[in-house]
Amino acid sequence: MSSIADIQQDIIDEFELISEDREATIFYIMELGQKLPEMSEDLKTEDNIIKGCQSKVWLTAGYEDGKVVFQADSNTDITKGLISLLIRVLSEQTPDDILNAELNFVEAIGMNQVIGSQRTNGFNSMIKQMKMYALGFKTKEQVNQ
């Protein structure tokens, strides 16, 4: 698995090619969303909904071999695309790496300009929740040791 920093750089490089074209950027994000595997319906519970998102977003996480595995879904393709970027960066990483991650790719690809302030807030809520999961698994592990 690549490091968080490497994955972010890959994303930045991919978006660089289309950064001048807002429509192409949005279409690209949407395509990423359409490719994100669907979450099973039984995980789309009220508890798994991220608050602060304009559209519906569900997030859940598991812990396997010291790494956090995220699953997420949304009712809109663009939001799913944004989620898929976060999953690509943060899923299958250790709790410490997730907690220490500085997500510079968000600004570097000009996400805020593309998705607007309301969706940016939702995006930040998503990141916060992912870090909360990481902290939860880390704490659990420390208690068990």
């Binding site: 807002r22 429509e23 949005i26 279409f27 949407m30 304009q54 559209s55 009712n75 809109t76 393709d77 663009i78 939001t79 998705i115 607007g116």
Partner: peptide
């Protein structure tokens, strides 16, 4: 098959 938010964002790009 497409959420209204997504349609709105893509229209805004135009």
């Amino acid at each position: 098959g497409m959420h209204p938010f997504d349609v709105g964002m893509m229209l805004d790009a135009r």
